[in-house]
Simulated assay, not measured.
Amino acid sequence: MGINIKGLTKNYGAQVALNQVSFSIKKGEVVGLLGPNGAGKSTLMKSVTGAILPDDGDVLVDEFSVIKQPIETKKRIGFLLENNPLYYDMYVREYLKFVANIREEKKERIEEVIEKVGLIPESHKKIGQLSKGYKQRVGLAQAILSNPDILILDEPTNGLDPNQILEIREVIREIGKSKTVILSTHIMQEVEALCSRVILLNKGNIVSDSPIEEFKGQYKSLEDAFYQLTQSK
């Protein structure tokens, strides 16, 4: 149970976005996916979700192939995109009901996730009326609505104030006890607070894949490790 990525390759013309990337993540792991802009993180996450197809390789989600069994893999994944696309003219509950209908989830689940991500105070409003932080909570709510085995979070605390960050961290930490979580972020404090392992991408290649304590132990800090491993020689 989890994710198994095998020789994932994706090119955009002459640009290599992913170069034979392989790794696996077990159930109950929260893994930090790091890398500078253009490293291949977004391409990797979109390949795992089936949003784009690789040129070579495959992704297995709970032993189902993203390429050969896309419906089965999509059922098992929740995805929060960095730009968090939402329908601003819909009310919070209306939007989550819309998502629940698509995923064939019970209506009771909507109230559960609203409470879980701290949306209750703003749940009567249209999404377009919400602050950036509360819009982010709506995005997280839709990602966990179907109780997915795999949760992929791209900058999940983007736009949140310090108190909200702590609250969402706790939600992610709780989810990570029983799910497989990939957390992509540029905020090193998030990685330190939530992740047991770090995968660092640079120019489409994995340059480090190790437990976070080992990763930190080799360098002065996570920031220093990031800098040293991603600088062009």
Rank of each mutant, 00 (worst) to 15 (best):
residue 106 K to S: 13
residue 113 V to P: 13
residue 122 E to H: 09
residue 90 M to H: 02
residue 90 M to C: 09
residue 111 E to T: 03
residue 94 E to S: 05
residue 109 R to D: 06
residue 93 R to F: 00
residue 110 I to P: 04
residue 116 K to W: 14
residue 117 V to L: 04
residue 123 S to A: 13
residue 120 I to V: 07
residue 115 E to H: 15
residue 91 Y to C: 03
residue 129 Q to W: 08
residue 126 K to A: 09
residue 110 I to Q: 03
residue 92 V to T: 02
residue 98 F to L: 11
residue 96 L to E: 01
residue 128 G to R: 05
residue 120 I to P: 02
residue 99 V to S: 00
residue 122 E to W: 07
residue 120 I to A: 11
residue 105 E to M: 13
residue 126 K to M: 12
residue 113 V to N: 00
residue 107 K to L: 09
residue 111 E to N: 13
residue 96 L to Q: 00
residue 91 Y to I: 01
residue 115 E to T: 12
residue 112 E to K: 13
residue 98 F to W: 14
residue 101 N to S: 15
residue 102 I to G: 00
residue 110 I to A: 02
residue 101 N to Q: 15
residue 128 G to W: 03
residue 102 I to E: 04
residue 97 K to H: 15
residue 121 P to A: 06
residue 106 K to L: 09
residue 94 E to L: 03
residue 115 E to N: 08
residue 100 A to W: 07
residue 104 E to N: 14
residue 92 V to W: 01
residue 125 K to C: 10
residue 106 K to W: 08
residue 118 G to M: 14
residue 97 K to W: 13
residue 123 S to C: 11
residue 127 I to P: 15
residue 102 I to Q: 09
residue 121 P to N: 06
residue 114 I to A: 08
residue 103 R to T: 04
residue 118 G to L: 11
residue 107 K to W: 05
residue 108 E to G: 15
residue 90 M to A: 08
residue 96 L to R: 02
residue 110 I to W: 03
residue 105 E to G: 01
residue 119 L to I: 08
residue 93 R to A: 05
residue 100 A to Y: 10
residue 124 H to M: 07
residue 97 K to F: 13
residue 103 R to W: 08
residue 98 F to V: 05
residue 116 K to R: 14
residue 124 H to C: 10
residue 103 R to H: 15
residue 104 E to T: 05
residue 129 Q to V: 01
residue 99 V to H: 04
residue 106 K to Q: 14
residue 93 R to P: 00
residue 117 V to W: 06
residue 118 G to W: 07
residue 126 K to T: 06
residue 128 G to T: 04
residue 91 Y to G: 11
residue 97 K to L: 13
residue 98 F to R: 12
residue 97 K to A: 15
residue 111 E to D: 12
residue 94 E to D: 13
residue 127 I to Q: 10
residue 120 I to W: 00
residue 123 S to L: 02
residue 94 E to N: 01
residue 93 R to H: 10
residue 95 Y to H: 04
residue 90 M to N: 11
residue 115 E to I: 03
residue 118 G to V: 02
residue 127 I to L: 09
residue 109 R to N: 07
residue 113 V to G: 07
residue 104 E to R: 13
residue 107 K to C: 04
residue 127 I to D: 04
residue 124 H to W: 12
residue 124 H to P: 06
residue 95 Y to W: 00
residue 124 H to R: 12
residue 106 K to V: 10
residue 100 A to F: 02
residue 119 L to A: 05
residue 127 I to R: 04
residue 123 S to D: 14
residue 112 E to I: 04
residue 111 E to M: 08
residue 117 V to D: 05
residue 129 Q to E: 15
residue 109 R to Q: 15
residue 113 V to E: 08
residue 115 E to D: 15
residue 126 K to N: 06
residue 99 V to E: 03
residue 123 S to G: 06
residue 120 I to R: 12
